[in-house]
Protein backbone atom coordinates (compact mmCIF):
# COMPACT_ATOMS: atom_id res chain seq x y z
CA UNK A 1 0.00 0.00 0.00
CA UNK A 2 1.18 3.50 -0.81
CA UNK A 3 0.17 6.45 1.28
CA UNK A 4 1.18 10.04 0.90
CA UNK A 5 0.02 12.57 3.42
CA UNK A 6 0.50 16.31 3.17
CA UNK A 7 3.72 16.00 1.21
CA UNK A 8 5.34 19.29 0.29
CA UNK A 9 8.45 19.85 -1.75
CA UNK A 10 10.02 23.04 -2.88
CA UNK A 11 13.08 23.36 -5.04
CA UNK A 12 15.68 25.95 -4.88
CA UNK A 13 16.74 26.76 -8.34
CA UNK A 14 20.17 28.27 -8.34
CA UNK A 15 20.31 31.54 -10.07
CA UNK A 16 23.80 31.78 -11.28
CA UNK A 17 25.50 33.92 -13.81
CA UNK A 18 27.92 32.31 -16.17
CA UNK A 19 31.59 32.46 -15.37
CA UNK A 20 34.19 30.57 -13.46
CA UNK A 21 34.23 32.98 -10.55
CA UNK A 22 30.50 32.63 -10.23
CA UNK A 23 30.80 28.86 -10.44
CA UNK A 24 33.37 28.95 -7.65
CA UNK A 25 31.18 31.19 -5.56
CA UNK A 26 28.30 28.87 -6.22
CA UNK A 27 30.20 26.10 -4.50
CA UNK A 28 29.73 27.92 -1.25
CA UNK A 29 26.76 30.17 -1.68
CA UNK A 30 24.06 30.37 -4.26
CA UNK A 31 21.47 32.91 -5.01
CA UNK A 32 18.32 30.92 -5.01
CA UNK A 33 14.79 31.07 -6.12
CA UNK A 34 12.17 28.87 -4.59
CA UNK A 35 9.72 26.87 -6.63
CA UNK A 36 6.88 24.94 -5.03
CA UNK A 37 6.84 21.58 -6.81
CA UNK A 38 4.38 19.83 -4.49
CA UNK A 39 1.93 21.52 -2.12
CA UNK A 40 0.21 19.30 0.36
CA UNK A 41 -0.18 16.21 -1.78
CA UNK A 42 -2.13 13.32 -0.23
CA UNK A 43 -3.39 10.08 -1.72
CA UNK A 44 -3.57 6.37 -1.06
CA UNK A 45 -3.02 3.58 -3.53
CA UNK A 46 -4.05 0.03 -2.63
CA UNK A 47 -2.05 -3.05 -3.56
CA UNK A 48 -2.80 -4.22 -7.05
CA UNK A 49 -4.25 -0.96 -8.28
CA UNK A 50 -3.36 0.58 -11.62
CA UNK A 51 -3.23 4.34 -11.43
CA UNK A 52 -2.71 6.87 -14.16
CA UNK A 53 -0.83 9.90 -12.95
CA UNK A 54 -1.37 12.77 -15.33
CA UNK A 55 -0.77 16.46 -15.54
CA UNK A 56 1.06 18.95 -17.73
CA UNK A 57 4.83 19.22 -17.77
CA UNK A 58 6.24 20.72 -14.61
CA UNK A 59 3.11 19.96 -12.59
CA UNK A 60 4.94 17.81 -10.07
CA UNK A 61 4.59 14.37 -11.61
CA UNK A 62 8.22 13.45 -11.65
CA UNK A 63 8.77 14.90 -8.17
CA UNK A 64 6.08 12.58 -6.84
CA UNK A 65 7.56 9.58 -8.61
CA UNK A 66 11.02 10.49 -7.34
CA UNK A 67 9.74 10.72 -3.77
CA UNK A 68 7.93 7.41 -4.06
CA UNK A 69 11.00 5.71 -5.46
CA UNK A 70 13.26 7.11 -2.75
CA UNK A 71 15.37 9.38 -4.95
CA UNK A 72 14.00 12.56 -3.47
CA UNK A 73 13.44 13.68 0.11
CA UNK A 74 10.34 15.84 0.66
CA UNK A 75 10.37 18.92 2.89
CA UNK A 76 7.45 17.81 5.00
CA UNK A 77 4.68 15.27 5.10
CA UNK A 78 4.41 11.53 5.53
CA UNK A 79 4.94 8.88 2.93
CA UNK A 80 4.84 5.14 3.42
CA UNK A 81 5.30 2.52 0.74
CA UNK A 82 4.63 -1.00 1.99
CA UNK A 83 5.43 0.17 5.48
CA UNK A 84 8.74 1.79 4.56
CA UNK A 85 9.70 5.42 4.26
CA UNK A 86 11.26 5.40 0.79
CA UNK A 87 14.07 7.91 1.28
CA UNK A 88 14.98 6.67 4.75
CA UNK A 89 15.14 2.97 3.90
CA UNK A 90 16.07 3.52 0.29
CA UNK A 91 18.12 0.38 -0.29
CA UNK A 92 15.47 -1.89 1.24
CA UNK A 93 12.67 -0.03 -0.42
CA UNK A 94 14.02 -0.08 -3.97
CA UNK A 95 14.24 -3.88 -3.93
CA UNK A 96 10.48 -3.90 -4.03
CA UNK A 97 9.98 -1.49 -6.88
CA UNK A 98 10.67 -1.46 -10.58
CA UNK A 99 11.13 1.75 -12.52
CA UNK A 100 10.95 2.29 -16.26
CA UNK A 101 12.15 5.68 -17.46
CA UNK A 102 10.73 5.82 -20.95
CA UNK A 103 13.41 8.04 -22.37
CA UNK A 104 16.45 6.50 -20.75
CA UNK A 105 17.91 3.08 -21.14
CA UNK A 106 19.15 0.75 -18.45
CA UNK A 107 20.45 -1.81 -20.92
CA UNK A 108 24.12 -1.99 -21.80
CA UNK A 109 24.45 -0.67 -25.30
CA UNK A 110 27.03 -3.01 -26.78
CA UNK A 111 26.33 -6.39 -25.21
CA UNK A 112 23.43 -8.79 -25.77
CA UNK A 113 20.34 -7.95 -23.73
CA UNK A 114 20.65 -11.18 -21.79
CA UNK A 115 23.99 -9.97 -20.40
CA UNK A 116 22.32 -6.88 -19.00
CA UNK A 117 19.71 -9.15 -17.43
CA UNK A 118 22.40 -11.27 -15.81
CA UNK A 119 24.01 -8.17 -14.38
CA UNK A 120 20.65 -7.12 -12.93
CA UNK A 121 20.36 -10.57 -11.42
CA UNK A 122 23.54 -9.82 -9.50
CA UNK A 123 22.54 -6.29 -8.64
CA UNK A 124 19.26 -7.42 -7.12
CA UNK A 125 20.71 -10.72 -5.83
CA UNK A 126 17.94 -12.67 -7.50
CA UNK A 127 18.13 -16.39 -6.68
CA UNK A 128 18.66 -18.68 -9.69
CA UNK A 129 15.25 -20.34 -9.56
CA UNK A 130 13.40 -17.02 -9.36
CA UNK A 131 15.54 -15.54 -12.10
CA UNK A 132 14.88 -18.50 -14.37
CA UNK A 133 11.13 -18.56 -13.88
CA UNK A 134 10.88 -14.78 -14.27
CA UNK A 135 12.94 -14.61 -17.46
CA UNK A 136 10.98 -17.51 -18.90
CA UNK A 137 7.71 -15.81 -18.18
CA UNK A 138 8.82 -12.38 -19.39
CA UNK A 139 10.39 -13.83 -22.52
CA UNK A 140 7.17 -15.50 -23.42
CA UNK A 141 4.82 -12.65 -22.62
CA UNK A 142 6.94 -9.94 -24.24
CA UNK A 143 8.18 -12.14 -27.12
CA UNK A 144 11.82 -11.55 -26.31
CA UNK A 145 13.18 -14.86 -27.46
CA UNK A 146 14.85 -13.48 -30.59
CA UNK A 147 15.93 -10.27 -28.93
CA UNK A 148 17.85 -11.53 -25.93
CA UNK A 149 20.93 -12.46 -27.93
CA UNK A 150 21.04 -9.12 -29.74
CA UNK A 151 23.07 -6.15 -28.53
CA UNK A 152 20.77 -3.37 -27.36
CA UNK A 153 22.12 -0.92 -29.93
CA UNK A 154 20.71 -3.04 -32.74
CA UNK A 155 17.16 -3.11 -31.37
CA UNK A 156 14.34 -0.93 -32.60
CA UNK A 157 12.73 1.44 -30.14
CA UNK A 158 9.76 -0.85 -29.57
CA UNK A 159 11.94 -3.90 -29.11
CA UNK A 160 14.14 -2.03 -26.72
CA UNK A 161 11.21 -0.82 -24.66
CA UNK A 162 9.97 -4.38 -24.28
CA UNK A 163 13.40 -5.38 -23.02
CA UNK A 164 13.51 -2.36 -20.69
CA UNK A 165 10.21 -3.34 -19.13
CA UNK A 166 11.36 -6.91 -18.70
CA UNK A 167 14.58 -5.66 -17.09
CA UNK A 168 12.56 -3.71 -14.53
CA UNK A 169 10.52 -6.76 -13.57
CA UNK A 170 13.24 -9.39 -13.18
CA UNK A 171 13.33 -9.00 -9.41
CA UNK A 172 9.54 -9.39 -9.03
CA UNK A 173 8.83 -5.90 -7.74
CA UNK A 174 5.52 -5.29 -6.04
CA UNK A 175 5.22 -1.82 -7.47
CA UNK A 176 6.03 -0.75 -10.99
CA UNK A 177 6.58 2.87 -11.94
CA UNK A 178 6.25 3.56 -15.61
CA UNK A 179 7.35 6.94 -16.87
CA UNK A 180 6.01 7.39 -20.40
CA UNK A 181 6.50 3.77 -21.42
CA UNK A 182 4.94 4.15 -24.86
CA UNK A 183 6.64 7.33 -25.99
CA UNK A 184 7.80 7.09 -29.57
CA UNK A 185 6.55 3.54 -30.09
CA UNK A 186 4.74 2.31 -33.17
CA UNK A 187 1.15 1.11 -32.88
CA UNK A 188 1.98 -2.59 -32.64
CA UNK A 189 4.51 -2.11 -29.87
CA UNK A 190 2.18 0.21 -27.98
CA UNK A 191 -0.54 -2.42 -27.94
CA UNK A 192 1.91 -5.12 -26.93
CA UNK A 193 3.26 -3.04 -24.05
CA UNK A 194 -0.25 -2.21 -22.81
CA UNK A 195 -1.36 -5.83 -23.01
CA UNK A 196 1.67 -6.91 -21.09
CA UNK A 197 1.23 -4.35 -18.32
CA UNK A 198 -2.39 -5.39 -17.89
CA UNK A 199 -1.50 -9.07 -17.72
CA UNK A 200 1.29 -8.38 -15.27
CA UNK A 201 -1.15 -6.64 -12.99
CA UNK A 202 -3.68 -9.44 -13.24
CA UNK A 203 -1.17 -12.24 -12.90
CA UNK A 204 0.94 -10.96 -10.03
CA UNK A 205 -1.11 -8.20 -8.52
CA UNK A 206 1.66 -5.72 -9.30
CA UNK A 207 0.72 -2.18 -8.40
CA UNK A 208 1.25 0.00 -11.46
CA UNK A 209 1.72 3.74 -11.44
CA UNK A 210 1.82 5.19 -14.89
CA UNK A 211 2.70 8.69 -15.97
CA UNK A 212 2.05 9.46 -19.57
CA UNK A 213 0.87 12.05 -22.04
CA UNK A 214 -0.76 9.37 -24.14
CA UNK A 215 -4.37 9.25 -23.04
CA UNK A 216 -4.96 5.98 -24.85
CA UNK A 217 -2.55 4.42 -22.36
CA UNK A 218 -4.73 5.68 -19.55
CA UNK A 219 -7.90 4.53 -21.22
CA UNK A 220 -6.52 1.06 -21.90
CA UNK A 221 -4.95 0.47 -18.54
CA UNK A 222 -6.10 2.42 -15.57
CA UNK A 223 -9.30 2.49 -13.67
CA UNK A 224 -8.19 5.41 -11.56
CA UNK A 225 -6.77 8.77 -12.48
CA UNK A 226 -4.80 11.23 -10.39
CA UNK A 227 -4.61 14.65 -11.96
CA UNK A 228 -1.91 16.96 -10.68
CA UNK A 229 -1.44 20.59 -11.52
CA UNK A 230 0.72 23.31 -9.98
CA UNK A 231 1.82 20.84 -7.31
CA UNK A 232 -1.66 19.95 -6.10
CA UNK A 233 -3.85 16.92 -6.63
CA UNK A 234 -6.79 18.40 -8.48
CA UNK A 235 -8.76 15.30 -9.15
CA UNK A 236 -8.81 11.72 -7.94
CA UNK A 237 -11.37 9.50 -9.58
CA UNK A 238 -12.22 7.04 -12.30
CA UNK A 239 -12.21 7.71 -15.97
CA UNK A 240 -16.01 7.39 -16.01
CA UNK A 241 -16.30 10.12 -13.39
CA UNK A 242 -14.75 12.72 -15.61
CA UNK A 243 -15.82 11.56 -19.00
CA UNK A 244 -18.64 13.50 -20.52
CA UNK A 245 -20.87 12.09 -23.20
CA UNK A 246 -19.58 12.15 -26.74
CA UNK A 247 -16.12 13.42 -26.02
CA UNK A 248 -12.91 11.57 -26.69
CA UNK A 249 -10.54 11.20 -23.81
CA UNK A 250 -8.10 13.71 -25.24
CA UNK A 251 -10.84 16.32 -25.44
CA UNK A 252 -11.92 15.54 -21.90
CA UNK A 253 -8.43 15.98 -20.54
CA UNK A 254 -7.84 19.14 -22.54
CA UNK A 255 -11.04 20.54 -21.09
CA UNK A 256 -9.96 19.55 -17.59
CA UNK A 257 -6.63 21.30 -18.03
CA UNK A 258 -8.55 24.37 -19.16
CA UNK A 259 -10.95 24.29 -16.26
CA UNK A 260 -8.17 24.13 -13.74
CA UNK A 261 -6.09 26.60 -15.70
CA UNK A 262 -3.01 24.43 -15.68
Amino acid sequence: MITMEHVCKSYRIAKRNAGFKEACKALFHREQEEIQALRDVSFTIQDGEMVGYIGPNGAGKSSTIKILSGILTPDSGQCLVNGLIPWKNRIRHVKEIGVVFGQRSQLWWDVPVIDSFLLLKDIYSIPDSVYRSNTDELTELLHLKELLRTPARQLSLGQRMRCEIAASLLHSPKILFLDEPTIGLDAVSKLAVRDFIRSQNQLHGTTVILTTHDMQDIEALTSRILLIGRGEILLDGTLEDIKRGGQTIDETIAQLYQEYEI
Partner: peptide, 11 residues
Amino acid sequence: RQNRQNQTRNL
Protein backbone atom coordinates in the same frame (compact mmCIF):
# COMPACT_ATOMS: atom_id res chain seq x y z
CA ARG B 1 -3.62 -13.93 -8.59
CA GLN B 2 -0.56 -15.90 -7.79
CA ASN B 3 2.35 -14.21 -6.13
CA ARG B 4 5.49 -14.76 -8.03
CA GLN B 5 8.05 -16.51 -5.87
CA ASN B 6 10.00 -13.98 -4.03
CA GLN B 7 12.83 -15.39 -2.03
CA THR B 8 15.05 -12.40 -2.43
CA ARG B 9 14.30 -11.06 1.00
CA ASN B 10 15.02 -14.28 2.79
CA LEU B 11 18.71 -14.18 2.05
